[in-house]
């Protein structure tokens, strides 16, 4: 990642939060889930399977420190000592490099479990579009994965693909969504799937006199179609929920949802903590099964 600070990715605020209704001292098991993603990292602290606190921040240049920082940030919101933790599960792109984790579990499993908690047991399809991948997951009422498909090979449709276009057009990533609707007429999608070829296609469109907004609209549409093609391959069963950074880009989401033909579920929780919530829940399940840390 090289620590290029000029990159302003999805504007989500680094935040931590503590649940005022929970006293950690009464909890039997304190479990922690840490999701180190390519762009952001989250730590969720759960008390007997309920969210007690969390911290969400930008991923740094290395996974171990990103994990430590996210956990420290979550703990900062509480009065709980860090060593109270009974079990810790790492997930996400950097999951094998979470130093305090007792084990790692894939983001597929954690996202399904986390979405089940955050959105409720009705959720059957979870779409997660992150900085470097697209995940489509079907799960049952318990949040167990029944079908999944992940694409982390190709940048098309991912946050990185959007970022390449924001750079090309000189439009801040935060404005992409709104600017893409500043067109008189919705253009056809950029035809190339490959980001490299889409980029040269876009350069051609600009030379032909297209406005940057129009090119953005054409690319957001291409992103939506790309994401849809991944989801469609797996199949969509209602209820449908979206997690990950792309959920916050209306330029893509408002073009994607009509293709899917369903409404997105809503939640009061920050959808970016879904993976870490799932990880902490797995930790809780393992503790309950007597498979927690040996004391």
């Amino acid at each position: 990642m090289g620590g290029e600070e000029k990159r302003e990715f999805w504007r989500w605020t680094e935040s931590n939060w503590r649940n005022p209704d929970i006293d950690w001292k009464n909890a039997r098991y304190i479990t922690v889930g840490i999701d180190v993603g390519s762009v952001s990292s989250q730590a969720v602290i759960m008390a007997d399977g309920q969210i007690f606190a969390y911290g969400s921040m930008r991923t740094g240049s290395d996974s171990p420190n990103s994990a430590r920082n996210a956990l420290a940030f979550a703990l900062e919101a509480t009065d709980m000592p860090g060593d109270r933790m009974d079990y810790c599960v790492g997930t996400g792109y950097g999951r094998v490099n979470v130093p305090m984790a007792d084990r790692s579990i894939t983001e597929i499993a954690c996202h399904a479990r986390g979405a089940n908690f955050i959105y409720g047991p009705q959720v059957r399809t979870v779409l997660d579009v992150g900085g470097q991948d697209i995940k489509a997951i079907q799960c049952d009422e318990k949040g167990k994965v029944t079908n999944f498909l992940m694409n982390d090979k190709c940048a098309a449709g991912t946050g990185r693909g959007m970022e390449v276009f924001a750079d090309l057009l000189g439009v801040s990533i935060n404005e992409v969504g709104d600017r893409s609707f500043q067109v008189d007429e919705e253009p056809e999608a950029v035809a190339s799937t490959c980001v490299v070829y889409a980029k040269s296609e876009a350069t051609g469109l600009l030379r032909r006199g297209w406005s940057r907004e129009r090119v953005l609209a054409a690319y957001c549409r291409a992103m939506a179609e790309r994401i849809y093609s991944i989801v469609r391959r797996m199949g969509v069963i209602p209820e449908f929920a979206v997690t990950g950074g792309m959920a916050k880009n209306r330029g893509v989401m408002e073009r994607l949802m009509p293709l899917i033909g369903l409404k997105r579920m809503e939640t009061e929780w920050d959808t970016q903590i879904a993976g870490a919530v799932g990880a902490a829940l797995f930790g809780y399940a393992l503790c309950q099964k007597g498979k927690g840390r040996e004391k």
């Binding site: 090979k153 990185r160 390449v164 980001v195």
Partner: peptide, 16 residues
Amino acid sequence: AQCVIFAESEVVSMIH
């Protein structure tokens, strides 16, 4: 990386 876009970052990390 098997994608040009991701390979660019990989090359940059190799340089670093």
